[in-house]
Design a protein around this nucleic acid. Structure first.
Length: 542
RNA sequence: GGCGCCUUCGUCUAUCGGUUAGGACGCGGCCCUCUCAAGGCCGAAAGAUGGGUUCGAUUCCCAUAGGCGCUGCCA
């Protein structure tokens, strides 16, 4: 164990690696400097931030204590580093503030959606705030349309944000008092922070870019999911651990903007993908340079393709939009995503939003990556479809049909409802609906060639004719009577019901698969049923 | 290559050192049945490898292998 960083002075005492430039010994190391920055950089927000954090210190300290072993030494936010927190104004548990900070790339990655979800659930579970911040510093690939995809994706999932943009317009209205919530609108904030770093020699300019001075030391930090993370210096960083925070074209770099925003927005827990684990020491160093305690970190494992490779933009199913387009139920997607990398520990698979909020916590998050399993998502979606309220099923069904080119509104509402009702419990996704129930909404039956060849044959003629006559005379047009009628007819003919059932189904729907035969006949109505039997007989005759 | 994280049925997971290693999806079989589903029942299916620690390891430690991540003046 070394007491280097937090002592605030040891950097000067530790032997510098051979060949080290003197300037490097002035790296972010001195408490006095931090306090200066604290006052000079941005009195208002830093001050407010620090007080808030310090007040929370007593209760919400990261789990690791100063006595912990490891060459990274104790955390730099010990009381010696930051005395003010001892007499903070409000000594009570800080309220949780988490954020989802996507970069608008044109689509919402399924992994990003889960990250947002975990943040949201964490906030809801702990009664905190969920912030949405758009990291649109890379103007080249950003557009309002890209932001819209993110906003609509989150809304579709039911993940609402307490603070953040109201519209995709970066200069448009936002809610929350820590805005702007688009990084492209926060340049002044970054510049002020960079000035502060520069003026205290915690950063320097070189080749037109601004570099942050990093301590060339191994680091250790605590992660709420991964646990202790100890990191030796890679070879490259032994040579030069400094990194660019402002590019030579003047644009601030991710590491800088991310930290500054989290700091300014009072983020208490950074819950993000594990691909950021390696960035964390840099971020912590930045927070320390600004003189504040870093937030808690929780790195969630990644979502992999079924074959174990990294799921990237181009991979099948990587975009949330796929599931929106294919008629998935948002609650099912949410439920599935939660179970991918998190477990309620009691074998329960189907959990409502309320149950998820109630039970979600970081302790149940896995430490290893998970592969995406479409089959299980589909099963779950089917579960939600079978259980949802009839009215919702009706609405989503109509929407899907309209999307597929049908015009459900051309039929009476009661007819549409009854038709959709025969599909309940039969489908895994709404995308299957047009193919499954399209016959309800077409004038002419579209025949599946195989079904027609198999069942609309001369041998079926007599059965269909007798059924047509029987149905024409049937007094009560409902599933029960239709079934009895068909079985009667079969009895009279001395054949099994199934010998009538299959040709009839194909005659009415064009397909071998579909809803319950008697129920679909009831919905179709006498006129259509008789007409379609007639058409089928003509086809047989032809 | 360097640094980091990870490793239970095909997949998602349960297991707070002692279990016939449980559940779910998927798969196979049976039942139900007008088709397809749904539902019910049954079944096959797992602790990467090698060392330790321990009376006893899936569980704790180390190593190896493998996977993933980071290694940009991308985010």
């Amino acid at each position: 164990m070394r007491a280097s960083r937090s002592a605030g002075v040891s950097s000067f005492q530790e032997p510098a690696p051979a060949g080290k430039a003197p300037a490097r010994q002035l790296r972010a190391s001195s408490v006095a400097k931090w306090q200066c920055i604290f006052f000079m950089a941005d009195g208002r927000s830093i001050s407010a931030e620090s007080e808030r954090r310090s007040g929370a210190g007593g209760k919400a300290d990261p789990p690791q204590g100063p006595g912990r072993s490891g060459s990274g030494g104790p955390p730099a936010w010990s009381s010696r580093t930051w005395p003010a927190r001892r007499d903070g104004l409000s000594i009570r548990a800080m309220s949780v503030r988490v954020r989802f900070a996507p970069s608008p790339t044109g689509f919402l990655h399924i992994g990003g959606a889960r990250t947002a979800l975990f943040n949201w659930l964490y906030a809801r579970h702990h009664g905190g705030k969920f912030i949405l911040r758009i990291e649109d510093t890379d103007a080249a690939r950003n557009s309002e349309e890209s932001v819209r995809v993110i906003l609509e994706g989150l809304r579709w999932l039911g993940v609402g944000w307490d603070e953040g943009p109201l519209t995709p317009d970066a200069t448009g209205p936002c809610q929350g008092d820590r805005g702007p919530y688009f990084q492209s609108q926060r340049r002044a904030l970054y510049e002020r922070r960079v000035e502060a770093l520069l003026s205290h020699d915690l950063a320097y300019e070189k080749d037109g870019a601004i570099w942050f001075r990093m301590n060339p030391e191994a680091t250790t930090f605590h992660d709420l999911i991964v646990g202790e993370v100890h990191r030796e210096l890679p070879d490259r960083e032994k040579e030069n651990p400094d990194f660019v925070i402002v590019r030579s074209d003047g644009k601030p770099v991710f590491h800088l903007t991310n930290v500054v925003d989290d700091l300014e927005m009072g983020v208490t827990h950074v819950i993000r993908g594990e691909d950021h684990l390696s960035n964390t020491p840099r971020h912590i160093a930045l927070f320390e340079a600004f003189g504040v305690k870093p937030p808690h970190y929780a790195h969630i494992p990644l979502i992999l393709n079924p074959d174990g490779s990294k799921m990237s933009k181009r991979d099948q199913g990587a975009s949330l939009q796929t599931y929106i387009d294919e008629g998935y139920v948002p609650e099912a997607v949410v439920n599935y995503l939660c179970l991918l990398g998190w477990s309620p520990k009691d074998n329960q698979e189907i959990l409502s939003l309320e149950e998820l909020i109630d039970r979600f916590d970081l302790t149940g998050v896995q430490r290893h990556n998970a592969r995406f399993d479409l089959a299980k998502l589909q099963w779950m979606n089917g579960q939600y479809m079978a259980r949802m309220e009839p009215d919702r099923f009706y609405e989503l069904g109509v929407h899907t049909l309209a999307h597929a080119g049908f015009d459900p509104n051309a039929w009476p509402v009661e007819y549409v409802k009854a038709a959709l009702d025969t599909c309940r419990g039969k489908l895994k996704t709404f995308a299957e609906l047009p193919g499954y129930a399209g016959f309800y909404f077409r004038e002419e039956v579209v025949f599946d060639p195989e079904a027609e060849a198999e069942h609309l044959v001369p041998a079926s003629r007599e059965g269909l004719e007798r059924l047509r006559d029987a149905f024409a005379r049937l007094e009560h047009w409902d599933a029960g009577h239709l079934e009895a009628c068909l079985k009667n007819t079969a009895g009279e003919m001395g054949v099994k019901p199934r010998q009538l059932v299959h040709p009839l189904r194909v005659a009415l729907t064009g397909s071998k698969i579909g809803p319950s035969l008697y129920h679909l006949i009831e919905v179709l109505g006498r006129e259509t049923t008789l007409a379609r039997i007639g058409s089928a007989l003509e086809r047989i005759g032809a």
